[in-house]
C-alpha cells in the first residue's frame, strides 16, 4: 500500500529558517526516518539529519514529530492518518546547526561533570561478585541510548536557557543514580556522596517530578520513579539525618 503524504520539515541554520512543504510517497511499514531519507534521495539532497542504526539502538535520529520528541526511526507512519500533515522539527532545547541537526554538546559537557565509577580498592579484576537482583537497578538506567529526548523535553531547560548551567538534566541525574546504586561503587570511600552531590552540584532540586522525561523515553526507562525520586529521597535523608550531620562535622574537624 502506497500513499502520498504531506510533510512539513524545518529547513534552516543558525541564521534562522522555516517549515517547508513536501509531498512524498509513503509505503506500508515505513517509519518517519524512511520518509526523510526519501526526501534526501529525491527532493532535498542536502537535507541534514542525524541517524545511524535505524533500529532504535543508537539514539541518533531524535527530532520532534508533530511537536513530540521522538526517535524518527521508531515512529511508524501508520500512527498518522494518511491525510494528516506530519511536521518534523529539530529538538527545541538545543541550538540548531542545520535543518534537523542540533548542537547537543550540552549533554557531553554534563556527562563530563559526573564523577566516574570508582572501583573498589583491593578487589582485583575478575573477582567482582554481585547478585543479579542488585545489578538490575542500575542496569535499567544503563539501557539509556543517549537520544537526549528527556533532556529536550524537560521543562527545566526546554525554555529556560538560564537553567542549563546548574542543571544536569534527567539523563545525567539518572547517571548519578546509576552509580549511586552500583553495588561496588566506592565513591563514598573518597568522600563523594553521590546523592548529596546530585542535589548540591547537579541541580536535582530543579526537578519537580512531572515525569515528562519518563514519557518520552524510547527505552521505557522509569527515569522519574526509579532514578530521580529515590535519588531525591537519599539526598534529603542525608541532609536531615542527625548522625550524618554529626559525622560530617567530625570529619571536617579532623581535616
Amino acid at each position: 500500500m502506497t500513499h502520498t503524504a504531506h510533510f512539513k520539515v524545518w529547513r534552516g541554520d543558525t541564521d534562522g529558517g522555516d517549515l517547508r512543504d513536501y509531498e512524498v510517497e509513503v509505503n506500508d511499514g515505513e517509519v518517519v526516518l524512511d520518509i526523510i531519507h526519501r526526501l534526501q534521495a529525491t527532493q532535498a539532497a542536502d537535507l541534514a539529519v542525524r541517524w545511524n542504526c535505524k533500529a532504535g539502538k543508537c539514539g541518533s535520529c531524535s527530532a520532534e514529530v508533530n511537536g513530540r520528541p521522538r526517535l524518527m526511526c521508531m515512529t511508524r507512519m501508520s500512527v498518522f492518518e494518511p491525510d494528516e500533515t506530519v511536521t518534523v522539527t529539530p529538538l527545541r532545547a538545543f541550538p540548531v546547526i542545520r535543518d534537523l541537526v542540533t548542537d547537543v554538546s550540552f549533554n557531553y559537557d554534563k556527562a563530563r561533570q559526573v564523577p566516574a565509577f570508582v572501583p573498589p580498592k583491593g578487589v582485583p579484576a575478575g573477582e567482582y561478585r554481585m547478585q543479579q537482583v542488585d545489578v538490575e537497578r542500575s542496569q535499567e538506567f544503563r539501557k539509556c541510548i543517549e537520544c537526549f529526548l528527556c533532556q529536550d523535553t524537560c521543562h527545566v531547560v526546554r525554555d529556560h536557557e538560564e537553567n542549563k548551567a546548574a542543571f544536569a538534566g534527567p539523563r545525567f541525574l539518572m547517571r548519578i543514580a546509576e552509580l549511586d546504586m552500583h553495588p561496588l561503587d566506592a565513591a563514598a570511600d573518597q568522600g563523594l556522596v553521590r546523592a548529596a552531590s546530585a542535589q548540591e552540584d547537579h541541580g536535582l532540586g530543579y526537578c519537580n517530578i512531572t515525569k515528562c522525561c519518563t514519557e518520552v523515553c524510547p527505552e521505557h526507562i522509569q527515569i522519574t520513579d526509579n532514578a530521580l525520586i529515590p535519588l531525591k529521597e537519599r539526598a534529603i535523608d542525608r541532609k536531615y539525618d542527625p548522625l550524618v550531620w554529626l559525622g560530617s562535622r567530625i570529619r571536617r574537624r579532623k581535616e
Binding site: 566516574a116 572501583p119 579484576a125 575478575g126 554481585m130 545489578v135 542500575s138 544503563r142 552509580l179
Partner: peptide, 15 residues
C-alpha cells in the same frame, strides 16, 4: 582479562 577489565570501569553484566 579484557572482559574483567570492563567491570573495573563500571560495566554491569548479567550475573
Amino acid at each position: 582479562d579484557r572482559v574483567w577489565e570492563l567491570e573495573t570501569w563500571g560495566a554491569l553484566f548479567d550475573r
